[in-house]
Amino acid sequence: MFRVYFFLLVVLVPAAEIGILLWSGKTLGLFPTLSLIILTGVLGTFLARTQGLRVLNQARQQINRGQMPGDAVLDGICVLIGGALLLAPGFVTDIMGTLLLIPPTRKVFKHWLGLYFRRWINKGNIRIIR
């Protein structure tokens, strides 16, 4: 099942990106489209950096209190993926990357990611050693 989703992701997202970029170039023009792509990349880098530092500090605080930083780890994974998506040129990846970096919408992705990891743990694909 994972292979099907991965295949669709690898084929459909670039196809959508190309279509939207062509439409944007035709509608807005070349330079406004390029400016939007560069602007989202710069803003994405800034947002990823600030959110990444916030998550890192959260993890440090949890470790200092003797807690496992599980929530901070999921936040970190979302921030890493969101930052990478914002650096990729295109509007679809920019929207997904932004959703992963904004804390209120990131909660939804963290929930899905947590369920996915729990499923892996229950199947025995991931072992937690104490």
Rank of each mutant, 00 (worst) to 15 (best):
G97T: 13
D75Y: 12
Q67S: 08
F6Y: 14
L80A: 14
F7Y: 13
L53Y: 13
R118W: 01
F91D: 07
I37G: 04
Q51R: 05
A72E: 05
L12Y: 08
L22C: 05
L30D: 04
T33W: 10
G83K: 02
V108A: 13
G52N: 04
P89V: 12
M68L: 15
R65Y: 12
G124D: 00
A59L: 04
T27S: 04
I20K: 12
L12V: 13
L43P: 03
E17V: 06
P104N: 03
L47C: 06
L86P: 01
L86Q: 04
A15N: 09
F109P: 00
R49P: 00
F2I: 03
L53C: 04
L22R: 14
P69Y: 11
R127Y: 12
T50E: 12
Q51T: 11
R118I: 04
W112P: 00
I37M: 09
P104V: 00
V55M: 09
F31C: 00
K110T: 09
I126R: 00
A16D: 09
R65M: 13
L56G: 00
L74K: 10
W120I: 02
G41F: 12
P32S: 04
G41V: 12
L53I: 10
N57C: 04
F91I: 14
Y116T: 11
T105M: 02
G82R: 02
V79G: 01
Y5I: 12
L101K: 01
R3G: 04
Q58K: 14
V11A: 06
F109Y: 09
F109H: 03
Q58E: 15
I95P: 08
F2T: 03
G41P: 11
T27G: 00
M1N: 08
L39C: 09
G52H: 07
F7K: 01
L115I: 08
L43E: 01
L86N: 05
K26P: 00
T98H: 09
